[in-house]
Structure formats: C-alpha cells, structure tokens
Amino acid sequence: MGFKLLSKLLVYLTASIMAIASPLAFSVDSSGEYPTVSEIPVGEVRLYQIADGVWSHIATQSFDGAVYPSNGLIVRDGDELLLIDTAWGAKNTAALLAEIEKQIGLPVTRAVSTHFHDDRVGGVDVLRAAGVATYASPSTRRLAEVEGNEIPTHSLEGLSSSGDAVRFGPVELFYPGAAHSTDNLIVYVPSASVLYGGCAIYELSRTSAGNVADADLAEWPTSIERIQQHYPEAQFVIPGHGLPGGLDLLKHTTNVVKAHTNRSVVE
C-alpha cells in the first residue's frame, strides 16, 4: 500500500471513529477524501466538511520552486461564519470567499490569524475590503508590521502568557507558548472536538522541520505538551499544512522538532 493511500485511509478511519463516538456532533463529509496538494491548482481553494458547521479550507501556493498546501478553518456561528487564517495570499483568499459563498452561503463576518507569517495573514486586506472584521493577538499584529505583512485590524486580548485561553464565538483560542513562531495560536472547536494546530503542528508525513527561522526550538516541545494537557479530548487535529489526523500529530511534531534540534547540535 502506497504512503499517500495509507495517509488518506488514516484520515478516513479517524473521521469514521469520530462519527461513531459522537453521532450528534459529527456529520463528516462523505463526498470524498481530504484534498491534497496535487489536486488543488494554485489560485483555487477546496472546502472539506469535518463536522456539522465545521470545515477546513485548503489552498496551495508556490514557494521556492515548489507547491505547498495550506489549511485553515471555518466555523459556523449562528447565521454567520468565523474564518481562521487566510488562504495564503490575496488571490487565494478572494477564491476562498467565493467558494464559501458557493458552498455554504453564509457571510464571513470575523477572521482570526493564528500567527504573523504570510500563509496566515496574506489576504487580510481582501477580507477587510469584503467587510470582514480581522483579528490577531497584539504580538501577531506587531510582528506582521515588522515583517511588512498585512496586519489584522483588531487585537485579541488575554493571550499574552503561555497557557492563556479565551473564548471567541464558537471557538476557544489558546496560546501554548512559542513553537513554530513566538505568537502562534491554537484554535479548538469544543462542539466538535476539532483542534486546529496551525503551523505549530505537523502532518504525519512530514519528517523535516522546514521553516524554523522564527521558531523557538527549545520551547516548542513544552508548548505541545500544554496543548495535549489542555485538549486531551480532541479527536480531529488539523495541521497548518497537509493531512489531518488525531492527537498523534502532536507527538510526531515533537519528535521531528527534537530530531532537528539534535542534528543542529551535532553539526
């Protein structure tokens, strides 16, 4: 069995187990497998329904001669939608809004960016022009300005110390501490036991640490421990890039980060 097929099978099995364990909360999309990078042309966006009122959005972007996937989250909030992270750029984010209108038909009224990198804030200006209120932590807003990236308009308070959590509509926002970046936030959907790890969490097929220019490698494993301790009931975990899975993604990420750190020390 090929690795790609095995990865998709694991996603399907995880979703099936969740649907059985929580039949009222989960209505997993039966329309197909989780979209992969090879299936999404740059400039297009796919939506994948995880649970009743919960979707991931998947886009792709060219970077350094390669094409990478990027995940975000959409959560229903009454007759409105909360968006977590842009679709990595203005063109993708405009396509995301169009796809949401086509498939869901509810307005996106608020959006949260989970850290300051372009795959999370690139497209904020498109959201703002569409009347979406954009939010991020003060740290993310400051770092985005320093980096020359787009800056969300509103500040999220109460997320300055490791372990801080605040309720934001249908989700809980959690600051686990520094990891992929010093400002990275985690998003949890309690009604569906869905954990969105953003770039602080890796997919299972990833074996290298990737972009760690703004990471705190020493603190990252401790931050992941905080996530595990705060959300032990999480059933569906979405990484910032690639295929979702279960809580095993947290341990896998820790292993990859520690291996990278150990290699760096040896070198």
Rank of each mutant, 00 (worst) to 15 (best):
M1F: 04
G2K: 08
L5S: 13
L5T: 14
L5D: 12
V11T: 08
Y12R: 09
L13A: 14
T14F: 06
T14D: 07
A15R: 07
M18E: 13
M18V: 14
A19E: 15
I20K: 15
S22F: 07
S22M: 14
S22L: 11
L24Y: 15
L24D: 15
A25Y: 14
A25H: 11
S27G: 12
S27T: 11
S30Y: 13
S30G: 15
E33A: 08
Y34G: 15
V37I: 14
E39D: 15
I40Q: 15
V42H: 10
E44M: 10
E44V: 10
E44C: 05
V45Y: 03
L47Y: 02
L47P: 06
Y48M: 15
Q49R: 12
A51I: 07
D52P: 09
V54G: 02
S56E: 15
S56H: 14
H57E: 00
I58A: 07
A59Y: 06
T60S: 12
S62P: 07
F63C: 05
F63L: 12
F63K: 06
A66I: 15
A66M: 14
A66D: 15
A66P: 06
V67E: 15
Y68K: 04
P69H: 15
I74A: 04
I74W: 01
V75N: 01
D77E: 09
L81R: 03
L81N: 03
L83Y: 02
L83T: 02
L83P: 01
L83M: 11
I84T: 02
D85K: 00
T86A: 05
A87I: 00
W88G: 00
G89K: 04
G89H: 00
A90S: 11
A90E: 12
K91T: 15
N92K: 04
T93L: 01
A94V: 14
A95E: 11
A95N: 11
L96I: 05
E99L: 14
I100W: 03
E101N: 12
K102G: 12
I104Y: 01
I104K: 00
L106V: 13
V108D: 03
V108N: 02
R110C: 06
R110D: 06
A111T: 09
S113Q: 04
S113A: 08
S113V: 05
T114R: 01
T114S: 07
H115S: 00
H115W: 00
F116K: 01
F116V: 05
F116Y: 08
D118F: 04
D119M: 01
D119F: 00
R120N: 00
R120V: 00
R120P: 01
R120W: 01
G122H: 08
G123M: 04
G123T: 04
V124S: 07
D125I: 05
V126Q: 05
A129Y: 11
A129G: 11
A130Y: 13
G131L: 06
V132Q: 01
A133E: 13
T134F: 01
Y135V: 01
A136G: 09
A136R: 04
P138V: 08
S139M: 13
S139W: 11
T140K: 05
R141F: 03
R142Y: 10
L143Q: 10
A144S: 11
E145H: 14
N149C: 06
P152E: 00
S155G: 12
S155T: 13
L156S: 02
E157P: 12
G158R: 09
L159W: 03
S160E: 14
S160L: 12
S160G: 14
D164G: 12
R167Y: 11
R167W: 11
G169I: 05
G169T: 05
G169K: 04
L173S: 02
F174R: 02
F174D: 01
P176F: 00
G177S: 06
A178I: 07
A179G: 10
H180F: 01
S181K: 03
T182L: 13
D183V: 03
D183I: 02
N184I: 04
L185C: 04
V187C: 02
V187N: 03
Y188L: 01
V189W: 01
A192N: 07
S193R: 13
L195T: 02
L195N: 01
Y196R: 02
Y196F: 14
G197I: 01
C199H: 03
C199W: 04
A200Q: 01
I201R: 03
I201G: 02
Y202S: 15
L204I: 13
L204F: 09
S205D: 13
R206G: 15
R206W: 15
R206C: 06
R206D: 06
T207W: 07
T207P: 12
T207C: 06
S208Y: 08
A209K: 10
A209C: 04
N211W: 07
D214I: 05
D214V: 05
A215P: 04
A215S: 09
A215Y: 04
L217K: 04
A218W: 10
E219N: 08
E219R: 08
W220I: 02
W220P: 02
W220Y: 07
P221D: 07
S223A: 10
I224Q: 01
I224D: 00
R226C: 01
R226A: 08
I227H: 01
I227G: 03
Q228E: 12
Q229W: 13
Q229C: 02
Q229S: 12
H230W: 09
H230P: 06
Y231G: 00
Y231R: 00
P232C: 07
P232H: 13
E233C: 04
E233A: 12
E233R: 12
A234H: 02
Q235Y: 10
F236S: 09
V237I: 07
V237T: 04
P239S: 02
P239K: 01
P239N: 02
G240H: 07
H241S: 00
H241T: 01
H241A: 00
G242I: 03
L243H: 15
G245A: 07
L247C: 06
L247V: 14
D248W: 07
D248L: 09
L249W: 03
L250C: 02
L250W: 01
K251F: 11
H252A: 04
T253E: 00
N255Y: 09
V256L: 10
V256P: 02
V257Q: 02
K258A: 11
A259L: 09
H260M: 05
H260P: 12
H260K: 11
N262T: 11
R263V: 13
R263G: 14
R263T: 11
S264H: 14
S264F: 09
V266Q: 14
V266S: 13
V266F: 13
E267G: 06
